[in-house]
Structure formats: C-alpha cells, structure tokens
C-alpha cells in the first residue's frame, strides 16, 4: 500500500503550483522556477507523487525540430483533491532560488 505523501513545504508548494493550472501539462523547469525547488529535489518529488497516483506524466513531443522530447506532469483527480486540501501557494512557501 503506498504511503501517504510527505507534506513538506516543498510538496505543498509543488501541489500549489500544479493546482494553479490543473488541466495543463507542466514541464519540470518552469515548475522549479515557480516553486524555487532545485532540480534534485523536484524530480524525486514528482516521481513519488506520480507513483502514488497524485500526478500523471507523459512525454510530450519536441516543441521545435532538433529539440528533445520533454516529460510533463499534471494532477490527477486524486491529486487535485489532495492539492485543494493541502497545497500552499508556491512562491510563498519557499524562497525563490535558481533551479
């Protein structure tokens, strides 16, 4: 049975950022800038939330020729419910820092 997500300030900030546009597929770098999370913090968090079915992820085709495909994330219905309950405003929870 998957454990409940750790409701750290980072998790709440991430949920808050994703909840701001729940239908939109979001890339990692904009999420990192928005939440102030470093890449090494953000991606394990995204992976954990995905494994717990709070997020869905997919590869999106390149936006321009010669660019790589990118992974994108958005909240599931279960994730939206969690985010509404637990999310913190992304920029208020953490100090902004370069990703």
């Amino acid at each position: 049975m998957p454990r409940q997500p750790n409701m750290s300030s980072q998790t709440r900030a991430l949920l808050g950022a994703l909840l701001a546009a729940p239908e939109v597929w979001r890339h990692g770098f904009p999420l990192a800038r928005e939440t102030g999370l470093a890449s090494g913090t953000l991606y394990p968090l995204l992976a954990r939330l995905e494994s717990q079915e709070f997020l869905e992820a997919r590869w999106l085709p390149p936006e321009a020729p010669g660019r790589p495909a990118r992974h994108a994330y958005r909240l599931t219905a279960k994730g939206r419910a969690l985010a509404r309950e637990r999310a913190a405003p992304a920029t208020a929870a953490l100090k902004a820092r370069p990703a």
Partner: peptide, 27 residues
C-alpha cells in the same frame, strides 16, 4: 526521474543546464 530530468535539460541554455544537471547527483 533522472531520464525525465535529463530530457528537460535539453531545453535549457548552457548555464542553466549545468546547474540543473548538478542537482541530480546529490539526490
């Protein structure tokens, strides 16, 4: 998630790419 992070780095400029990549190692 490292594969996803690496793919994301492909969309970044050189300076940001290095900082982005360095974050994965301690994690």
């Amino acid at each position: 998630w490292i594969d996803a992070m690496r793919a994301e780095a492909g969309a970044l400029d050189d300076g940001a790419k290095l900082v982005w990549a360095a974050g994965g190692l301690p994690a």
